[in-house]
Simulated scan of single mutants.
Amino acid sequence: MIDSIQSVRSFSTSALTETATENTVAGSTLQSALAPSAPQPMSFAQVLGDMATDAVNALKLSETKSFEAVQGKASTREVVDAVMSAEQALQTAISIRDKVVTAYLDVARMQI
């Protein structure tokens, strides 16, 4: 499960690299043409990739804390906090996945 979430991050990184390559104009990118003080908006793929990375990190932390608790190195509260955080991240990822699938099915059913 964790490996499949990490693959989303690698996909978004490669998509961003391809987009940056396509946006090159006469040796300078469109980004450099903008004012340096202007904040750069995040792409949807980047937001999803960051969220997937955060979910993976929460799951790994939860697993680590669980093993530390078995070894007697972590308190019950630390374990519960880590597991609750991982559960929330996983539920969010599942919810977003369901919304994306629903949106895809809606688009697929559209008449042209």
Rank of each mutant, 00 (worst) to 15 (best):
A20K: 13
F11N: 02
M42L: 12
R109Y: 14
Q6P: 03
A35M: 03
S75T: 15
T21F: 05
Q71A: 05
V25L: 15
A69K: 04
L90I: 15
T64R: 02
S4W: 12
E68D: 05
V25F: 14
V80W: 02
D81E: 08
S32M: 11
L105N: 11
S95A: 13
A103V: 15
V100N: 13
L30K: 06
A58E: 01
Q6D: 09
Q6E: 13
S95M: 09
S28I: 07
T24C: 01
K73S: 11
E68V: 11
V107H: 12
S4V: 14
S10T: 12
E87Y: 04
V79M: 08
M1D: 00
M84C: 05
A82H: 08
A38W: 03
E68N: 14
D81M: 06
L34N: 02
A74G: 00
Q31M: 05
K73A: 10
R97Y: 15
A45R: 00
L34E: 02
V8W: 08
V8T: 03
P36I: 04
T24G: 08
A69L: 10
S62N: 04
V56N: 06
S4C: 09
R109Q: 12
L105Y: 08
I5L: 10
L61S: 04
E22Y: 02
L90C: 09
L30Q: 06
A93K: 11
P41E: 11
T17N: 00
A69Y: 05
I96W: 06
V47M: 06
L48H: 11
V100S: 03
A93V: 07
L61I: 13
A108V: 14
F44T: 04
